[in-house]
Structure formats: C-alpha cells, structure tokens
C-alpha cells in the first residue's frame, strides 16, 4: 500500500536535484532530499494538526479535569469533589428525562425517517420528467438552519396558531393539542419536526447510494421480467446496505447531540421541567447559563462518553466494511 503512493525520484536519475556523478555526492543529495521531504511533511501538516489538537482534543481533556470540581467559572477551580458531579447528574430526574428524550430521538429518527426516506428515494430515483425539481424541493428542509426551522415551527404550532386553525378548518378540531406546552406531548411534537427537517438528509444519502447501483443490474433484472418492485426489493435495496448503515451512524450521532432545534422551539419552562430537555440543552442550561461549570463539564463528559461508545460499537459491528480505512484504520 505504501509504495503505491510513494514519492520517488524519477527513474534514470533525471531529477531536478543537483546530484553529482560520484557516489558520495549522490548520497548527500539523497540526504538533502530526505530532509526537504520532512520539512514539507511537517510544514504542510502542522497547521492542521495544531488547530485540530487545540480545539478538538484539548477541550475534551479539560472537560474531564473541570468535571471533578465544584466551580463557578471564576478563577482556577479549587474545590475538588471527585466524581460527585457525575453521581449528582444521574440522580437528577431532569437529566434522566433528558437521557430518555435523547433515546426517543435516536430510535424515533431511525425507525421513522429510515422507511420514509427509503420510499421517497426509490420514488425519486425513477426516471421521469421534472425529477430534478422534486429532488430540490425535498432537500429544502435539510438545507435550512435548524434555528430558522425551529422558529418557523414554533410559530406554526403555537396555541391557536396555524396548525390548529388548519385542523379546525378541515373539521378535525378534535386533534387540536397544546403541541409545545403539553408535557407529555412536546417531545413527540419535536420528534415530528425533526423528522420533517432531517428526512431530506437521509434521502440525499440514499439517492447518492442509488446512483452507485449499476444500471446494468436493474436492466438485466427488467429484461428477465422482474417488476419494478421486485427489482427494488431484490437488487437495489440490498446494494444500499452500506449507505443505510452510514446514514444510521450519522443520524445516531446527530440525535445524541441535538441542541439548536430543541433550544429555540421548546419553551424554556417546559424544558426546565425536563419534558423537552436533551443532554445538550441540559448541559448548556446548567453549565453556561446557571454557571455550574464543574457540573456542566461533567454532563459534557457523559454526553461525550455516550456518543463515543455508541459510535465505537456501531463502527465495530456495523460499519466496518463501509468507511475504508477511516477510524478503525485496517478496515478494507
């Protein structure tokens, strides 16, 4: 593998380097060349490595450190409390609600968005006039900022708002609910909005995967007399396996961290009761706004560990063959 990408001197010594005819000169030229190569390697990678280490890896290290203190964020942390912040978190019913809500969003997204997206992607993968326009329209919710979409749905779902008015005018007044204020309902409302927003992402990925399915396969099946549905069921969908697994992975990680939409759509009072809190909103509410920095960092570490373990397990058992070489290094 290594030699394939290796930087070699062009054959025949017809290089730009001033190598002398004698062996000693050639050796020193090779040393100079090696040194130059290392200068380039270091020069080209250092900026990326420094920024990456400094802003991705180092903060997580600090989070672990801060999480062991009771600290209001002023001056250096001094009041060491060990793992107390962690036990406090798992004793707080609001945090447990947040965990439950994250679980609802993770599994709800997978179970609801997956089938819908697959159906729409298969539909939009058929060749028909105007397909490009339909594709563009379906992606719209995904492209908009979560915040903008969140504000939009908040306005639509507000008490006696547009959705309620629409339901009444359609004679379905019985369906009118306090969508964002009902403590038992709000998380399901948010799940519905998230589905609307993110199904487009699954569709983009699946369409990308579908375009990798060779036409020859489906055409051969068609010639053999398979119906459209048989082709999808037995040829296309099985070939989408890797794409579906990557989507599941990305969806899961995104759902565990979900913040923006929950933050702007749900009423703070409802959130503070736990009905619509997620781990991330709980972390920001407590750590940043309530200035419980030690505690907030402990929640950050919990959120990180849960995401990391979920990602590793997923990698280990489902993704191994799909991302070549990434993360696991040796997958091929």
């Amino acid at each position: 593998m290594t030699s394939a990408n290796q930087i070699r001197m062009p054959a025949g010594g017809a290089s730009a380097s001033p190598a002398g005819p004698d062996g000693a000169g050639r050796a020193s030229a090779r040393r100079a060349e090696t040194r130059r190569k290392w200068y380039e390697i270091i020069g080209l990678t250092t900026p990326a490595v420094v920024i990456y280490v400094m802003f991705v890896l180092v903060p997580m290290g600090f989070a672990v450190y801060y999480s062991l203190f009771r600290w209001r964020g002023v001056g250096p942390p001094t009041e060491f409390v060990g793992l107390r912040n962690y036990t406090l978190a798992f004793q707080d019913p609001i945090f447990l609600d947040a965990l439950r809500n994250n679980a609802i969003i993770v599994f709800g997204s997978l179970l609801i968005q997956g089938p819908i997206a697959l159906g729409i992607a298969l539909l939009l993968n058929r060749r028909f006039r105007g397909r490009a326009v339909f594709r563009l329209l379906v992606f719209v919710p995904y492209v908009l900022a979560e915040v903008t979409v969140g504000i939009m749905w908040k306005l639509l779902l507000t008490g006696n708002g547009t959705v309620d008015a629409l339901l009444r005018s359609l004679g379905m007044g019985g369906l009118v609910h306090a969508w964002l204020a009902d403590l038992d309902l709000v998380i399901w409302t948010l799940l519905a909005v998230l589905t609307w927003k993110y199904v487009g992402f699954a569709i983009i990925l699946l369409l990308a995967g579908l375009s990798n399915v060779p036409d020859e396969l489906t055409e051969a099946a068609a010639i053999d007399g398979a119906s459209w549905w048989q082709i999808q069921r037995h040829v296309t969908i099985p070939l989408l396996g890797p794409t579906i697994r990557i989507w599941m992975f990305l969806s899961m990680i995104g759902s565990l961290q979900i913040f923006d939409m929950i933050w702007v759509t749900s009423v703070p009072a409802v959130r503070s009761l736990g009905a619509s809190a997620t781990m991330a909103t709980y972390m920001v509410d407590n750590g940043f706004f309530a200035r419980l920095w030690g505690y907030g960092n402990a929640v950050a570490v919990i959120l990180f560990v849960i995401s990391f373990v979920a990602a590793l397990l997923f990698q280990r058992f489902l993704l191994r063959r799909d991302i070549q070489g990434a993360i696991t290094g040796r997958a091929k």
């Binding site: 997580m60 950050a300 990180f304 990391f308 590793l312 993360i327």
Partner: peptide
C-alpha cells in the same frame, strides 16, 4: 497511517459535547 487515524478519530468527537470547555478555553 497513524496520523491519518489520528485525524479520523475526530469524527467521533462531537462538537456539541466540547462546547463548554471550548468556551472556557
């Protein structure tokens, strides 16, 4: 390959989780 794996490890670091220490830094 070690350096590459080191970078790909970042795919597993959610930005959301790092936000509080990031702010402090």
């Amino acid at each position: 390959e070690g350096l590459y794996t080191f970078f790909t490890l970042g795919l597993l670091f959610p930005a959301g989780a790092a936000i509080l220490p990031l702010y402090l830094m």
